[in-house]
Design a binder for these strands. Structure first.
Lengths: 187, 187
DNA sequence: CTTACTGTACCGTCTGGACGGTCTTGTCAA
DNA sequence: TTGACAAGACCGTCCAGACGGTACAGTAAG
């Protein structure tokens, strides 16, 4: 009857994210995760021998997912514009704000070093963007504005209306396509 | 000397920020804070009767400081341009990355609701910016790019070189002053 | 026999916070 | 001036509970 194997791992990972969101990032306990995942504590510890390993897996799982989504978004994007794909993918994630990734705060609370893989990821992504984007200033503006939106959604700052957000996204796509120009100064 | 150690509160607040940075946001314990502040645990509990009150004070203290710095930066800014002041002040904070505010993660881990005052602050600030900035699209771009930089500095993503950061800041100031704008898409 | 768990019992440590005591300072009547 | 007294600021200790992790016996499937 048991369908063991990888299924459990994913269930546990999802449960951890749920618990972090519902009980607060500081109250993510192994007992709670096990219960939520419908798994015994022993079973949890069998899959992730320590809490640190759980957190690490959480981070890596998320990164891998994002990476795959990015590659796919790029394929769907005109001329394979990476920056535009990044903007679009991020915007899509911000819309479905159902799961505000609170698990990341759990990981940071556990040990700030869990951010290291994210740092590497972010750095590599930025380097790729630098290599592929002709207008560097436009890249800077776009990239950081997207990160700003991500930050706002992470902390749940709802500062923009639906329209305003769409307006910003379309501005960003314009800039990403190199449509940024100095305005002539009035004499 | 009505209050023998009136600055105890400030010492404790500073100590809490230090401990959060040095021991990790998840290891901010009252004992550690008390020790760091050169105060007994009883003394700490006297000033902040509960850990939650400590966290709240941490957030409010920080907000108040930022608010005052912003008003001052504005006075120093040409035409009292609020957006430009915001950019400049934020940029200044990012340079002195000595104290990456890890205490905020402690607060979130303790209880995500501690973000509420920040949300209010951010909303009010944005509303003021909206009222005072003629070009709304430029505001969006600038504001979120600044938030993106803040996020990068918070998570310690060092993705930019010194030059690159300065370049971005000057771009942002240009946009803030209306000298750079996304070109509207041709119909 | 191995894999992949379940279930229970247990341990050592850490933490928030309650509590009672102590020292210092200010106030005010005599 | 002085002595009594109250309030403010802080100290040290103790404790119940929670948490991460271990150990181990059992079990069902392949």
């Amino acid at each position: 009857m048991k369908k063991p194997r990888a299924n459990s791992r994913d269930k546990i990972l999802a449960a951890a994210a749920d618990v972090a969101r519902e009980s607060g990032p500081g109250n993510l306990s192994l007992d709670a995760v096990a219960q939520r995942a419908g798994v015994s504590k022993g079973g949890l510890l069998y899959n992730f021998p320590t809490k640190a390993k759980l957190m690490q897996a959480l981070v890596e799982h998320h990164l891998q997912e994002f990476q795959e989504a990015l590659e796919e978004a790029r394929r769907e994007c005109a001329q394979g514009n990476l920056l535009a794909a990044y903007v679009k993918l991020s915007a899509k994630k911000f819309e479905e704000d159902q799961p505000p990734s609170a698990w990341i705060f759990s990981a940071i609370a556990e040990d700030p070093d869990f951010l290291a893989p994210i740092r590497v990821f972010q750095r590599e992504l930025f380097d790729r963007l630098k290599a592929e984007t002709p207008d560097f200033k436009a890249l800077l503006l776009t990239y950081f504005a997207v990160e700003g939106m991500r930050s706002a959604s992470l902390f749940d700052f709802q500062v923009l209306s639906e329209q305003e957000r769409q307006s910003l996204v379309s501005s960003l796509l314009s800039v990403a396509k190199g449509k940024l120009a100095p305005v002539p100064e009035p004499a």
